[in-house]
């Protein structure tokens, strides 16, 4: 089955380039020869049902796992295979918001956010503190600078994780299930923040999610993965896929259809 509606480049600069990616664990191949581009300034959503390889794909994109074969380029720099050492060069280009926020539990929120700033800039502590305060206020966490991650709620932890991912104003942001475990209001606020950041800083966003409302609010483009073909079954804007897709699985996903219960 060929993926439908592959988006053409329109000469837009490419932020992430994936070619013939084969990914998996041990003897099991999860993704087979996946190819796609993420363009600069795009809010790009990776969709799919559980177990289709969304998180696996994300782990490959951020360089946590080296693929079995295939190539990944971030900002024109290849990070796979023998070019894996280039990862050091791209770490500053992207930020990642992990599903469980990934905050260091022994450090306060301020220390967590300050960590990349101390690592990668020459700023003095005074300016770093100012920036930390700004980043935390951007995600509505003013006043929580001295709290430890264990002292705040899950939603707040997620926002603090976002503040840390944002600390160096990366050109690409990766989100692993950003709305998981958040209430609808916080989730909507996060969506608004994503759009806002994309608009003001032109940040490219790659989001792994299956929250339909959030997808329709933020996504410029989505790809849908499927475990049956171990690859992409659809590529396009969410509205287009919902209204015009001929693929039964895509239709089923967007219309939230399930097999009827025989009661």
């Amino acid at each position: 089955m060929e993926p439908e509606n592959i988006t053409q480049s329109d000469n837009k600069p490419v932020a992430i380039k994936v070619r013939e990616l084969v990914a998996g664990y041990d003897n099991e191949i999860v993704l087979n020869k996946v190819t796609f581009d993420v363009f600069q300034g795009e809010i790009f959503v990776i969709l799919g049902s559980s177990g289709c390889g969304k998180s696996t794909l994300l782990k490959h994109l951020i360089g946590l796992i080296d693929p079995i074969s295939g190539e990944i380029e971030i900002g024109g720099i290849k990070i796979t295979g023998k070019d894996r050492r280039n990862l050091q060069k791209v770490f500053r280009k992207y930020g990642v918001l992990f599903q469980n926020s990934g905050l260091l539990s022994s450090m306060t929120l301020a220390e967590n956010v300050a960590l990349p700033l101390q690592q990668y800039t020459n700023l003095t502590d005074k300016y770093i503190n100012t920036l930390v305060k700004m980043k935390l206020s951007l995600v509505n966490l003013s006043g929580f600078e001295n709290h430890l991650p264990s002292e705040i709620s899950g939603g707040m932890r997620k926002r603090a994780g976002l503040a840390r991912a944002l600390s160096l104003n990366p050109s690409i942001l990766f989100f692993d299930e950003p709305s998981a475990g958040l209430d609808p209001v916080t989730s909507a606020e996060l969506d608004r923040l994503i759009i806002h950041l994309n608009h003001t800083l032109g940040t490219t966003m790659v989001i792994v999610t299956h929250e339909l409302p959030s997808i329709f609010t933020v996504a410029h483009r989505v790809i849908m993965l499927d475990k049956r073909i171990r690859g992409i079954i659809a590529d396009g804007t969410p509205q287009y896929l919902r209204d015009h897709s001929q693929n039964p699985y895509v239709k089923q996903f967007f219309n939230r259809e399930v097999e009827p219960l025989n009661l």
Binding site: K133, S137, N146, T200
Partner: peptide, 21 residues
């Protein structure tokens, strides 16, 4: 203007840093 208001420059007090734990 947009970036300054996004980072709440006007309401950002004279005290630039927060109290340490």
């Amino acid at each position: 203007k947009k970036v300054l208001s996004m980072n709440r420059f006007d309401s950002f007090g004279q005290q630039t840093s927060f109290e340490q734990r």
